[in-house]
Design a protein around this nucleic acid. Structure first.
Lengths: 354, 354
DNA sequence: GTGAAAGCGCTAACAC
DNA sequence: GTGTTAGCGCTTTCAC
């Protein structure tokens, strides 16, 4: 962004607010209310029987002092931490916020709180994030993907808490897993495309060595092509920048280079949307002359002039199921669960009816 | 999403992995290495002088055991927590992930870690999130917006740590603040629009009673209109659903209802983009017959057939500055800073040149 | 360069 | 129903 910015520091109009004074403790509430620390603790946690009178006195004291319990001390003493670590590669891909939404929603009435860590698709960064999270002794961990460093896998396996790897099931899980088979998804899309009569098929995707799920989709896609005696007619990769714009640019590049292409398979909906806008602007007959498909089923597609073919990645459901496993809602099981979800192919308006 | 899904639970192929055994402690490392707990602690924190030999022995023991330090105990003992609470209204509005990126980037080499909480634009939820976060005794808090419940303000003020309210500076900050004046932003956009000769101006926005910043922009916008002797010719509000789609629908509704409208001001870029796509599809002369403008400067706009006029909200910069304040990089100040950033108006291709 | 003792602020377990 | 005691696993401080 080559945008110039100006800033000024306004004069301080009031005294500094955060004098690092000692924060309040149970003892303070105890003294203010004339009730023992232990009973104060009970009131504040709604544990055990406390007379209404004492309870009121304690709550009043706590409220008027502005007491906020120290969970660090509480967690150390009780050996319980109401935190669930969630490790994802990115927040700018809307897929992950949606998974998070599913997790939060399900965790809401369990007293558990998700804590998010972002890895930017870097295995080393992931290892660090996992280490940092485990050092807070969370009640469970939800980690995107099945591919981790040796050390990360070892730490997770050692942690003694439920671990759920999400999004993908094509591989070996540390403990539990909830996701779809991306390889199968790629295969299915290829089969649908071939069945609709397309033959000169190109792939356009991200150049991210660590996006294993995109890689597996492409792999499955090529497997199905091979079974039909086909190979990819062209490929184009990108990294960084506005996905929508990259989609336009890559599409233009591919169509200029290989004018006889009749199908464009994108590794995600955002670049697919860019490609769709480009084709429409060029007056290309979609899906007559050229068909298009993406992956993810993102909400954005609803607003486009034509509905891009895609596959729903079951994001919300994945989040929910993973959270349920952590919350121990699957009675009778103690880890080791693998839940496969099955995405639906939405043909939209960019694949010819077979 | 009316998508059917199927799932099955695959048979467990391996023994459950997370038997909740006791996790390792410093003592375990101490015993395994034959070095005192204290020295082990020093090695693991790189504190004080330790002989190379002992250091090696300790690290080897820790590594082979797979020891992960317990930060809960560490934090309690040292009274230091390397966490920074970040409270934002939403993750699905790309604005906030970008602010987060700025925060993470700046915090990276300070040893501080951001922990994110999401409020869904609910003041009560915000109060809860703030309470929960403060109970972990973070080193600082970054909170979106200046409007909070009484209790939330009180807690923040009491916490004894640096508090930075971000995004907005039109109001009273608890401690420090970094943001732009949304009222001024609305005013500026209105002035630009009027200067370009538009007169029949409509507003299209979210119906979110707690989106104070959108409200302030509209307010500033109307002020500037009034100064020019104008009032809004029409308005339309929405909530929920795909913003891009809503943008199309709202635009259609407004243009049908008020055919003489010559400008559409959107409260965010996403609905603005939907409106733009609608106008282009209808063959409306943009910006000749109708002008359009949004707010935020989102990356997505780069991929659209035409560049929507917008104002950059300085998201990355806001994140960076806020993090710098928390990290204590503004030497000589102890809170109470207010940093105003000045967004740039990007006229794009959807406002007539004056 | 290394170790021993005390205690961070809470809660589990038990007494009364 | 309420209080007392003993830690939780580290780090601080001070001694050696």
């Amino acid at each position: 962004m080559g945008v110039r910015r100006f800033s000024r520091i306004l004069p301080v109009t009031k005294p500094p607010v955060h004098d690092p004074r000692r924060t309040l403790t149970l003892r303070d509430v105890s003294e203010a209310s004339g009730v023992s620390e232990m009973t104060v603790s009970r009131v504040l946690r709604n544990r055990g029987d406390v007379s209404v009178a004492t309870r009121e006195r304690v709550l009043e004291a706590a409220r008027s002092l502005g007491y906020v319990p120290n969970k660090i001390a509480g967690a150390l003493a009780s050996q319980r931490v109401n935190l669930v670590g969630v490790v994802i590669p990115s927040l700018s891909n809307m897929v992950f916020p949606e998974v998070l939404a599913g997790i939060s929603e399900t965790l809401e009435d369990t007293g558990l709180q998700p804590v998010v860590g972002v890895t930017n698709y870097s295995p080393e960064r992931e290892e660090t994030v996992i280490y940092e999270m485990l050092s807070w002794r969370p009640s469970g961990m939800i980690v995107a993907g099945l591919e981790h460093t040796e050390a990360a896998r070892a730490m997770l396996a050692q942690a003694g808490i439920p671990i759920v790897e999400i999004m993908d099931i094509d591989g070996e899980a540390v403990d539990s897993a909830v996701g779809i088979s991306h390889r199968r998804a790629g295969r299915q899309m290829a089969e649908a495309i071939i069945a609709s009569g397309y033959r000169r098929i190109a792939f356009l995707g991200t150049m991210m060595p660590h996006d294993h799920r995109a890689r597996k989709r492409l792999q499955g896609f090529e497997e199905a092509l091979a079974k039909a005696g086909l190979t990819l007619a062209d490929q184009e990769f990108y990294s960084g920048g506005s996905a929508l714009l990259k989609g336009r640019e890559m599409t233009e590049a591919v169509l200029k280079r290989s004018p006889d292409i009749d199908f464009l398979y994108y590794s995600n909906d955002m670049i697919g949307a860019g490609g769709l806008l480009y084709c429409l602007a060029q007056g290309i007959d979609v899906p007559g002359k050229i068909g298009l498909a993406g992956f993810n089923g993102v909400e954005l597609l609803d607003g486009l002039p034509r509905r891009l073919a895609t596959m729903d990645a079951c994001r919300l459901e994945i989040g929910r199921r993973a959270a349920e496993i952590i919350a121990g809602k699957h009675a009778g099981t103690i880890g080791g669960e693998v839940i496969e979800l099955f995405p639906t192919l939405q043909a939209g308006d960019t694949i010819r009816r077979a």
